[in-house]
Design a protein around this nucleic acid. Structure first.
Lengths: 143, 143
DNA sequence: GCCGCAGACCGGCATTTAGCCGGCCGGGCC
DNA sequence: GGCCCGGCCGGCTAAATGCCGGTCTGCGGC
């Protein structure tokens, strides 16, 4: 359905949807008319839904962090998550493969409250380690 | 800061960011060059952050993953993120404190495409390591 | 008053881009 | 082989853009 050139084209459009066809064609490595045809196909097939503008948003009043949690032997998500759901600042928990068992997303008002939350998570039965990574910024977000 | 004509212009761009200046000028009720100047002002003042494309294939990704990235010495988010924004499956990038420099959130159709994306991220200049954690589930999500 | 200045706007010109279309090429098929 | 079809290229003309000079208006200082 989508080949490499489609992906390059979509990537270029994501970066700047107002780029001219000539510029897009240079990125893709095809002639202008071939690029134009691909774009029309992507629009016709509904892959491309719309071209829109991204505005400066003004809401991130909080400290956010990702806390990488590992479990003690024998413990599972279903043992730990119920305790975490009691902490209001916990926004999400993702069960992961690899060296991290659970990624806990936290949003709170201050570093002091982040400290308390980290303590609370560490104290949950079954939590072996809780490594805190403050989110300094989100230079790319979509969806 | 924003007058009615700015709002009309932004509204028209939201509907179709690839609309020509001539068409936009018709919507706004100004000459083409005045419209062009307003657009440039909105871009310069940071009101308009980017022009981007909205895709259809973003609602039910089969595979989600967090890819923990570290940078080579001397590299920063601003060097790396622009490359990542060209990968359509990249949903978000979070700049972190701690042993992880950047957390890249990915949503794609299959493990095979996840493999390709991981390769693409690894190949970005400045990326030292890219550790993939597949998201097995999200037992808690709110807000 | 009135002068100069700055911002927003208009219109014209040269250049660039887009829309359209005929033609080329390679792969699949009979 | 001969045929068709999809993907691509390049040329032509019309449309859009970049650029810039010029007009108008509001504003502050003299």
């Amino acid at each position: 359905m989508l080949d490499d050139k489609d992906r390059i084209l979509i990537g270029a459009l994501r970066r700047n949807a107002r780029e001219s066809l000539v510029g897009l064609a240079r990125s893709v490595g095809l002639s202008r008319s071939a690029t134009q045809e691909r774009m029309r196909r992507l629009e016709r097939d509904g892959i491309i839904k719309a071209y829109t503008v991204e505005l400066a948003s003004e809401q991130d009043p909080a400290v956010r962090a990702m806390i990488a949690v590992t479990f003690d032997p024998g413990f599972r998500c279903r043992h730990v998550v119920p305790h975490l759901s009691g902490i209001p600042e916990v926004v999400a928990c993702h069960s992961l493969t690899g060296s991290i068992d659970l990624m806990v997303i936290v949003a709170c008002e201050s570093n002091a409250s982040l400290d308390r939350i980290r303590d609370a998570i560490s104290a949950v039965p079954g939590v072996a380690t809780a490594t805190t990574h403050v989110i300094l910024g989100t230079p790319l977000a979509r969806g």
